[in-house]
Amino acid sequence: MARQPAKTLWYDRPRYVFLEFCVEDSTDVKVDIDDHRVVFSCKNADGVEMYNEINLYTRVNSKDSQQKRSDRSITCFIRKWKEKVAWPRLTKENIKPVWLFVDFDNWRDWEGDEEAEMAMAEQYAELLQKVTVKGTPPAMDDLDDDI
């Protein structure tokens, strides 16, 4: 029986790259994560062998990476060697396999988050400064005393 690749979703975070191998009711799951590669294999509910081999974009910390199996998929948490460095793609090769997809439900452009937060903090500080600067009180001599 021939093996086939599992549909795979991925997304990037500052410390980790997340992979999700979409195989329902998987058995015989094996995930080998080394510093430059991930090898995944299992059998699906129909007994078909699923197999993916991914040469990663850059080095990872395989000792601090792990995976979790659920009824619907196998998720890998792969620790980046260099944190806070965005990955433009998952694979070392600049070719996207047909079974690999970006997980847009979990994707966030975190790379510019710090700059945006700093800009918002500066804007807030300026607003506070404008509010707390007290000028001369308004003249109230035009008010009637007959009230």
Rank of each mutant, 00 (worst) to 15 (best):
A121L: 11
K82S: 06
I33A: 09
D141Q: 03
A116Q: 10
L19K: 08
D144T: 04
E53W: 00
R13H: 02
P5Q: 04
Y57I: 09
K134F: 14
K63F: 10
V85I: 04
Q123R: 15
E114N: 06
F101K: 10
K84G: 07
C42K: 08
P138F: 08
V102H: 02
E20H: 10
D105V: 01
L90K: 11
Q129D: 15
L90E: 11
R3F: 15
T58Q: 14
E126R: 15
R13D: 05
S73A: 15
D105Q: 02
E49T: 15
Q123G: 09
S26P: 13
D103S: 05
D105G: 02
Q129R: 14
F18R: 13
W99E: 02
Y57M: 10
W81S: 02
M118C: 11
D12H: 10
K63R: 12
N61I: 00
M140R: 13
D103H: 10
E93Q: 07
D34W: 03
E111S: 01
T27Y: 08
V17R: 07
V38C: 09
P88G: 03
S73P: 07
A121Y: 02
D34M: 01
V31C: 10
R79N: 04
S65D: 06
K82P: 01
P88T: 03
N55S: 08
F77R: 14
A116N: 04
W10T: 06
F40K: 06
N55T: 10
V31Y: 12
S41F: 05
A139K: 10
N44H: 12
T58S: 14
K92L: 03
T8E: 05
V98Y: 04
E49Q: 15
S65N: 08
V23G: 00
F101Q: 13
I147H: 03
N52W: 05
Q67N: 14
E111Y: 02
P138C: 02
E53C: 11
W10Q: 01
N55Q: 13
T136D: 07
K134Q: 11
R79M: 05
V39F: 11
V17Q: 02
D144F: 05
